[in-house]
Design a binder for these strands. Structure first.
Lengths: 340, 340
DNA sequence: TTGTAAGCGTTATCAG
DNA sequence: CTGATAACGCTTACAA
């Protein structure tokens, strides 16, 4: 007999309804394989006892947890928050739950989180970017846990991914900028170390320069964290260069908005004195004054698609192709031709 | 013998190391209860086979999943993203993993998510705000899953919470505003329905009005979604009122920033023509021009504290008191005395 | 249509 | 310090 205070089990329900555990299980998982009358009785018992299936027992029996893990650098960045939200919604539609961990941009932590989520029973894993120790992929392969890389697309990479080509996207924006006549260019970027998206974007700028016959060495690049004051200092450093850059290309919108604010504080007019561009097209880009020229990235769509692909990988064990999403340049007020 | 393609189990490791499963288990969970030599051999086998413990089996044996669930309205709002990030980091420090679901502000969905996370084995649950069907609490009690309410604090509520007093916080800001001489007040708010935080903030404004002998009916309140264009329309509606409000109090920073942008588009100067205030003090509040007067809420600290409290509830089955965090008014350029 | 019973991979208890 | 073994709660052949 179960004590009053313990959580009801399948067995309790079975006893209460006067059937076997197998029947209760069937009522819950394949209702049509049970006759109406018994089902009704069973479901009533379930309701009365407040029964909820025990997860551990279930995944042991089924060998699936219907749980998908995601490891993002941080949820604080709007692009990941937004993508994750869409990812979670789509997962929910398909009957899966989301396990979240953040690496805070630390490879070791990410590795640890991978192990953790796998041993927590994740059926599949979402990872951001390709940069990581190959041992991680080996481990996942060994554990037979499919992994999908997002926020980047690389046709040549061995790992399946859903994302866009950061290099080409940035190159297009840079082409636009150079086309306006800018030649003195400053770049504010997040740390390149361990972050392929960041590196690819910078390569994209270089591609554009080269195609115009300009030297990549003419590029003044400053790395910074996302801290507002740090970004301000990065902007200061670029403005101290002589001759001063006529445009500051930022690795993403968060950095660009920080630069914009700093320019305002310094009395530097955007875009008259200096142009500023971003990347991502977060909501904020339209709200700041002047509105930000940037690259639109379909973060929500990426999250949704990633969920679909990952569930597909888990359920069909397929090894389909990577998915490439398109980005678009959004020209807004913060970019103009250089004055001089 | 295990087939090449199957995931290694405790048993495989035991065989490989020439010990019993019990010893392997001990090596992993209480290493000091095993002699150095055997441990080394075992750990090597673990490494070689790429073994990771099976979650389902583990939680069945231990009756704990070391997983905490969180159900937030949406991760897209920076305040939740930031709080969740801190929550997750603290959880990780204590050996727990985070299961995330979002209700998208729908009570039914939230209820469903509660069931889901519980049957997924969550040891504890984080919920936002008090507003919900009592049946949810009953279910949780029945399942013996402790739940903690966050983003609000109510001394009288039966449910334990970690948060701040939304009403008092907003009242203080309103006192400040009224003290400057404002009497015509517009309010832009998220939907009050099913959201106690929103209602409490509005009550706070009313409290301030009453204490000055002003009537709450003098308040012009417009509800809106977070969509940029919707917010703009809400602002338009308030600006159409005659006589025009001298200040627009927004339920949070996201709404305030939207209002700010709309004011700019309309050529309405802030704070000269109209003052605008926010709530939350997200990073953005300092970045926009003019910088936003708002109420600083310690979101990260709230997330961290919630994690600590919840783990405590799970591990010690304590029923301690709710935790009240302090908020502070941040006066910045967007608020000034009325011109006329 | 329903019941019986054998796993699933760990941990914990109890001997040795 | 280590090993054998009984749970843990569910699903799923297989039988009835």
């Amino acid at each position: 007999m179960q004590s009053e205070r313990s959580v009801p089990t399948l067995d309790d329900v079975a006893k209460a309804a006067g059937v076997s555990t197998a029947t209760v299980s069937r009522c819950l998982n394949s209702p049509d394989r049970v006759v109406d009358k018994t089902r009704k009785r069973v479901l009533q018992a379930v309701e009365e006892l407040g029964y909820a299936p025990n997860f551990g027992a279930r995944i042991m029996a089924v060998k699936r947890s219907f749980t998908i893990g995601a490891i993002v650098p941080t949820m604080e960045n709007a692009i990941f928050a937004r993508g994750l939200q869409a990812f979670q919604e789509e997962l929910h539609k398909r009957g899966y739950t989301l396990l979240v961990a953040s690496s805070t941009y630390q490879p070791d932590l990410e590795r640890e989180q991978v192990h953790k989520l796998v041993s927590r029973g994740a059926d599949g894993l979402l990872l951001i970017g390709h940069d990581r120790d190959p041992a991680v992929y080996e481990f996942l392969k060994n554990q037979q846990v499919p992994a999908l890389v997002a926020w980047t697309y690389a046709a040549t990479a061995p790992q399946r991914s859903v994302g866009f080509d950061n290099r080409v996207a940035m190159r297009r924006l840079a082409d636009e900028i150079l086309g306006l006549g800018h030649t003195r260019i400053g770049v504010i970027s997040a740390a390149r170390q361990g972050n392929d998206r960041v590196r690819q974007r910078i390569e994209g700028i270089n591609d554009a320069l080269m195609s115009k016959g300009l030297s990549p060495t003419s590029l003044n690049t400053v790395e910074t964290t996302y801290d507002v004051d740090q970004v301000a200092r990065a902007f200061d450093a670029l403005m101290a260069v002589r001759p001063r850059p006529t445009v500051v290309i930022c690795g993403n919108d968060v950095l660009a908005v920080g630069a914009l604010r700093r320019a305002y504080d310094l009395g530097i007019k955007v875009p008259q004195d200096v142009s500023i561009t971003g990347f991502d097209d977060i909501e904020l880009a339209r709200i700041v004054v002047p509105a930000l020229t940037t690259v639109h990235v379909p973060h929500q769509k990426m999250g949704r698609t990633a969920a679909q692909e990952l569930v597909d990988m888990v359920e069909n064990k397929t090894t389909g192709a990577s998915v490439k999403l398109e980005t678009h340049i959004r020209i807004r007020e913060s970019l103009a031709a250089p004055q001089q």
